[in-house]
């Protein structure tokens, strides 16, 4: 009884914190506070999702939502400082009505669902031995609904292509931005992150983990490298970037078409080699996700810098 009450108290506190932070985030007039509080929400949300039996989602949210989104938002805030500040927004009634209506409809839709059983967990568990993996979420991502994952990798690539089209990459931050403490930290963190990513990828077949979490971790390592670089320049390895970023889609398309000759269905992994095929596909996806996310933080096409770097941005 005591543990139940404590768990309930924890849940209520977490939920209340998240909601309070969320409303603070949208109400505040200070743009930096908006960004900073949003990073806070992402981290608290990751903890909340662990409470909701979703540790791999919590991993992904912490890396993507707090880490990469946070870095991007801060970079965008830095570049738009002073430009966008205008008169404070005064409208309350219209937005409040919109929010209330949305919440009411959502609540009405969710109310009958309390207490019902969750969906297909049992069916999937029964068929796990026909896939190459033994962790249900990985099985759904790479076997049952592989087309979704293929398209998702395409979304990443499409975002990268769109970003490259906008122009050359510019340094994330100006001036010298690292000191000895930061460099020492990166020296320790970088290999740890790479090992963590490899572990997440390998263990994704049997426990929480997988290509997306591993890729996001590697991308974070890439961003750290970027920050340590003077003037935040990215080497212009155009071919390497193109191939690495496309590796995931290429692997899924190639393997998927290849197995069509064997099993007669696109993306239908033959049982005998399913484990190996899934591992190859996931590794390619990890490389692709890491490259794409890191390059998205860079925010432009990496080009070779000509001339003096010192004074121009």
């Amino acid at each position: 009884m005591g543990i139940d009450a404590a768990a309930l108290l924890l849940d209520v506190t977490l939920a209340a914190t998240v909601v309070a932070l969320g409303w603070r985030c949208v109400i505040t007039a200070d743009r930096f506070e908006t960004v900073a509080v949003f990073i806070g929400i992402s981290l608290v949300m990751a903890i909340a999702w662990t409470r909701l039996e979703a540790p791999d989602l919590a991993l992904a949210e912490a890396a993507l939502g707090a880490g990469l989104n946070g870095a991007l938002l801060l970079a965008a805030w830095a570049e738009t400082r002073g430009i966008e500040d205008g008169p404070a927004e005064r409208r309350i009634a219209g937005p409040a009505l919109l929010a209330a209506t949305t919440m009411a409809v959502a609540g009405a839709g969710l109310a009958p669902l309390v207490g019902a059983e969750a969906g297909l967990a049992a069916e999937i568990a029964a068929r796990l031995d026909q896939t190459g993996v033994s962790y249900p979420v990985t099985a759904v991502l790479v076997d049952f609904r592989a087309l979704d994952t293929l398209l998702e990798l395409c979304v990443l690539l499409a975002a990268l292509a769109a970003t490259w089209q906008l122009g050359a990459a510019r340094p994330l931050l100006r001036g010298k931005l690292y000191g000895p403490v930061f460099v020492a930290y990166v020296r320790i963190a970088l290999p740890l992150l790479v090992v963590l990513a490899a572990a997440l990828l390998w263990r994704g077949a049997t426990s929480p983990g997988g290509a997306f979490q591993a890729g996001a971790t590697l991308a974070a390592a890439g961003v750290l490298l970027l920050l340590v670089n003077p003037a935040g320049r990215v080497p212009a390895l155009s071919w390497a970037y193109r191939i690495c970023a496309s590796l995931g889609v290429l692997a899924f398309l190639g393997l998927g078409t290849g197995v069509t000759a064997v099993t007669g269905r696109f993306l239908d992994w033959p049982l005998s080699h399913a484990g190996a095929l899934v591992l190859v596909a996931e590794t390619a996806a990890t490389v692709a996700i890491a490259t794409t996310l890191a390059l998205l933080v860079v925010g432009g096409r990496p080009v070779a810098q000509r001339g003096r770097v010192g004074k121009r941005h």
């Binding site: 609904r145 087309l147 979704d148 398209l151 998702e152 395409c154 979304v155 499409a158 975002a159 292509a161 769109a162 089209q165 906008l166 122009g167």
Partner: peptide
């Protein structure tokens, strides 16, 4: 229904890239 969602997102991002391709401020 969910496959359609991912397709819609891909369509959105690709279309936005096409709109932004001239690179001028109004286009962006």
């Amino acid at each position: 229904a969910f496959n359609v969602y991912v397709g819609l997102e891909l369509l959105g991002i690709a279309s936005v890239a096409l709109v932004a391709s001239p690179g001028t401020r109004p286009a962006l």
